[in-house]
Write a protein that binds this DNA or RNA. Sequence first.
DNA 1: TAATGTGAAAACCTTCACAGCT
DNA 2: AGCTGTGAAGGTTTTCACATTA
Lengths: 206, 206
Amino acid sequence: MDSFSVPEVVVLRLPLYVRALSQLRDGGTDVVSSQQLGSLLQMTPAQIRKDLSYFGRFGKQGRGYNVRFLLHELREILGLDREWRACLIGVGRLGHAIINYPGFSPEGFKIVAAFDGDSDQVGTSIGGFKVRPMEDLAEVVNEMKISIGIVAVPASQAQEVIEKLIENKVKGILNYAPVAPQVPMNTVIRNIDPVLSLQSMTFYLR
Amino acid sequence: MDSFSVPEVVVLRLPLYVRALSQLRDGGTDVVSSQQLGSLLQMTPAQIRKDLSYFGRFGKQGRGYNVRFLLHELREILGLDREWRACLIGVGRLGHAIINYPGFSPEGFKIVAAFDGDSDQVGTSIGGFKVRPMEDLAEVVNEMKISIGIVAVPASQAQEVIEKLIENKVKGILNYAPVAPQVPMNTVIRNIDPVLSLQSMTFYLR
DNA sequence: TAATGTGAAAACCTTCACAGCT
DNA sequence: AGCTGTGAAGGTTTTCACATTA
C-alpha cells in the first residue's frame, strides 16, 4: 500500500483524525467507533472506515478502534513520529507571528532558523535566534538538516524565495504569500491564504 | 444557474482566477486565453473553461477572455463587489497578527470590531479600536452589520465563541483555532490551520 | 449484538474532443 | 486560424449495504 495508490484527499484528512484521536485520548476515551469519530468531525462513518482501509485494518469488529493504537499508527503513517525542522523566510509582522505561534512545536515542527532578504532585519534577534541573510541559506539548510521552508515574504518575492529553497533540496514548503507558486512535482507545497478562504465564503453569504 | 448547482470545488477555485486576473490587469494584459491562465495557475485550460461555464459565457471564441471584464464578472459572482465587515474574537498574539495583517482591507474585508473574553484585554486598544467584552457582541454585530466572525481564541474556547457568533446571525466564520467546529448547515466556515497542512505534507516527505 | 472492512453502486469531478463562433 | 463552450467519456471519490468477525 504505497503513497501513490492513496488518494490525496485521504491524506489531507488523516491529520483531522489524528487531532480528534488526540483529544479523545486526552479526554480518557479508550475505544471509539467510526460513528462517534464521524459525528465529532462531521463526516460519515463509511468515509472514515474507507480512508483507514487504505493503510490497514486497525479496528475490531463489533467494538471499534483503540484510540491510542490508531493514533499511534496514523502518526507513523504521516511521518509524525519524528521531529521536522523548518526554517522561516521573512521576519516581518507575519514572520514574527509565525515564529511566536506556539502550535508548531508540540506537534513536532521546530523552526530552527530565520532568514530575511532585507539587510536591515539581518542580525536582529527573533524567537531566540538571529536573523540570517539569504546567502546563508544553503549552508544552514544543509547543516541543520532543514526539510521544510516556511515562506512569509511579500508576494513579489515569494516565487524567488521558493526557488531558492528548492535549489537547496527543501522539499516541503508552507507558503503564506498570496501567490500561486510554480513548483516541480516532487515538491510538496501548502498555501495558507485567509483572503482566498474569505473570497470563496462570500459566494455563499451573498 | 443558482448556487446549489455549482460544485463547491469550483467556487473554491474562483478566487484563484480573481487573483490571477488582477495580476494580469495590473501587468497591462488585456486579453487572456484559458491556456495562459492555466499555465499561470498550474491547471488545465479545460478545467478553467468548464468552471467558468457554470456561470455564463465570458469569452470570445478565437480570442480568449477580456481580463477586466472577466475579473469584474467573477468579483460580482463571488460577492466581492461590496465591502464585508468582520469582527475579530480573541486579541492574543494571533489576534494581533490578524488585525495588523494588511491583506484583508484592500480586498474589501474590513475588521471593524474586536472582542475578547479575558477582562484584562477588554478596554485595551488594538489596530485603532478598543477591545470589547463578549457581552457586547450582540449589540455590535447588529449595529455595525457584521457578517463575518474571525475566531482567534484558544482551542478550548473556540466552539463556544463560534456558537455565540451563530446565535447572533453571523453566517460566515473564519476559524484560526485548531479544532473541528460543529456548525449548522447554513453557516459557512473556513478553517486556517497550518499544523494540519504540515501534517499532511510530511506524508509525502517521509 | 455491534461494529469493521470492503466490493459494488452512485455521485461527483476532470478531461477530451470537436462544433461553432470570431 | 484560434479559442471558447460543452456534451460525452473517463476517472476519482463517496456512499451503500452486507458478509464477517469479536
